[in-house]
Design a protein around this nucleic acid. Structure first.
Lengths: 211, 211
DNA sequence: ACCGGAGTGGTAGTAACTACCAAGTCGGTA
DNA sequence: TACCGACTTGGTAGTTACTACCACTCCGGT
């Protein structure tokens, strides 16, 4: 059990990790991802290149790390299994987005949200990051299918779930892109709901908080 | 106009290109993608590593090159704009798949189809290839949206199209994965239709050739 | 005071690429 | 037939992401 061993160690570790990532995203945004070397990031964060690789397995992970997936999977597992698949997944995605962007809205976005936007812009504009980000979505798809609790031994049921989840995630991704394009002005949950409606029709999105 | 200049030159070029790719896919399948260097591929194809890079910009492109996208975009542009979006896209995807896999079915698959399967397996199992493949799908999404001929100046219309196309492509991808898993035993167009139905419901897939 | 383990740094090496330049080869022309 | 331009290929050297392997330092508990 290497965790919980010491709060001070964990704090320092998380601290340097945040520092490195913050400098990385800043440099990538300023100079461009490809034009910035890992050594540049290390120097900006006042650590050695080695340390960067200790905290982030690849250069791409300097931008891509997040636990959005875990959040969604939890929402899914906690949702009622009686609703149709797409509706169930859609609700979970919207709720997770609401949790993620909860905070100041309008003109005064929280610092965390600004950081999220900066990362998202990098993911969308940089080919290497975009590719790996989409692959992360693919991994998230598998996680959601598992969280659905469907009978994965039956190939047909699994196939059905895979298709539904993949389509929902694609719609969400469209919403994410648009959110980044509009600099987070529109509320992300609403955008996701709109994207789901565009893809699946009016009857899919439940009118939860706003109706 | 550097093409059409000489058929002999073009033939030789296409020939070496095919040779390199064939050896690459073979070696990747035998030894694994990461365990095979570009130099290995070059030696197997009896060319220099330089030549490999001349024909394929990146190592990943040794597996990923195809013109499936062009095919789909043509199908889309030729489809009637009166039908609902998802139905229109779905039909195009199914038709394109039918064109792509046309040939011997059942136990005797055409050599080209075996090659396609081998490439698909690599794309699904190798993280680096999977990521870039998904990014190609993202590019295809943009191409399809353009081919739809919708009013891209209106952000809402464009957003609607993006979401619908993305969801359809995700469903198709699920079908592709399943097709590869079952070694191409099931007919690809049928699988895609099934995936679309799973995601969008019964009323989306038109009963064209089989009903 | 002391030891184990976590975090960090250095060195050297692999492999994917990218200029930059040199050589051979094919296509049409004087 | 001799020749020139364009295409294709090969070689060299360099950059960069990433990976062992080993050594040092500092925190946390005995």
């Amino acid at each position: 059990m290497p965790d919980q061993h010491s709060t001070l160690r964990a704090q320092r570790r998380a601290e340097t990790q945040r520092t490195i990532q913050a400098h990385a995203v800043r440099l990538f945004t300023e100079r461009g991802y490809d034009a910035t070397t890992v050594t540049d990031v290390a120097e900006a964060a006042r650590v050695s290149p080695m340390t960067v690789y200790r905290h982030f397995p690849t250069k791409e992970d300097l931008v891509l790390v997040d636990q959005h997936g875990r959040l969604v999977a939890e929402q899914i597992a906690a949702s009622s299994a009686t609703q149709p698949l797409v509706r169930r997944i859609g609700s979970a995605l919207i709720d997770a987005a609401a949790t993620l962007t909860r905070g100041g809205h309008g003109d005064d976005l929280a610092a965390g949200e600004q950081f999220l936007l900066a990362r998202l812009r990098l993911m969308i504009l940089t080919p290497a990051l975009r590719a790996k980000h989409l692959d992360n979505h693919y991994a998230l798809q598998q996680a959601i299918v598992d969280a659905l609790g469907a009978d994965t031994t039956d190939p047909d049921t699994a196939f059905h779930a895979q298709a539904a989840v993949g389509a929902c995630l694609a719609a969400m991704h469209t919403a994410l892109v648009r959110w980044a394009e509009t600099d987070g002005q529109t509320e992300l949950p609403d955008l996701i709901a709109k994207a789901l409606t565009a893809a699946f029709g009016d009857d899919v999105v439940d009118t939860g908080p706003d109706a």
